[in-house]
Amino acid sequence: MNLFRILGDVSHLLAMILLLGKIWRSKSCRGISGKSQALFALVFTTRYLDLFTNFISLYNTVMKVIFLLCSYVTVYMIYWKFWKSFDSENDTFRLEFLLVPVTGLSFLENYSFTPLEILWTFSIYLESVAILPQLFMISKTGEAETITTHYLFFLGLYRALYLANWIWRYHTENFYDQIAVVSGVVQTIFYCDFFYLYVTKGRCQGRVE
């Protein structure tokens, strides 16, 4: 465990709590892509199947449970509790364009052809593109509430910090997880455009146009 990874996990947790808090306080999920949140719930479900079979550390187990809870509660609030405020007409990204290639690739390019390993690989590939429906929705509506931009900032920051974690682990432990690193680079690249917007336009109050 190193500082980059802890900061990355905290940033990830903060992003999820920011989003949950925003939906809960405003009693609305306007501007939030339910599809992205559903994909994140799928990412955690397929990645954390080893939750009860492979104990790594208390931290690891607790964080996995928290991440699973946050993602499922968020999906519940979008599609059930506050479904009236969900603007599905703007959340139109075709998920099959993500799920089909990601599934295919996880069968082709993995570390070992076992169910758990293929599901883990699927979750890594899926996570790198799971934010696309949300970014697509923002580009379609042309705006995002400030809290949503903070959510996206910390979500993008988390994987960027993981990249630093992998560089650190490569130099200190000679650790190298090729699938996670390549996917992490792709995932962070998708946020670059948003990071630029966040920094340049983040100062205007209320909304980022």
């Binding site: 990645r47 080893d50 550390s57 690891n60 964080m63 570390y111 190298y176 997880d177």
Partner: peptide, 10 residues
């Protein structure tokens, strides 16, 4: 394989 068998990261 290059990755870690127990995937100790979140």
């Amino acid at each position: 394989f290059p990755g870690d068998p127990d995937h100790d990261e979140l």
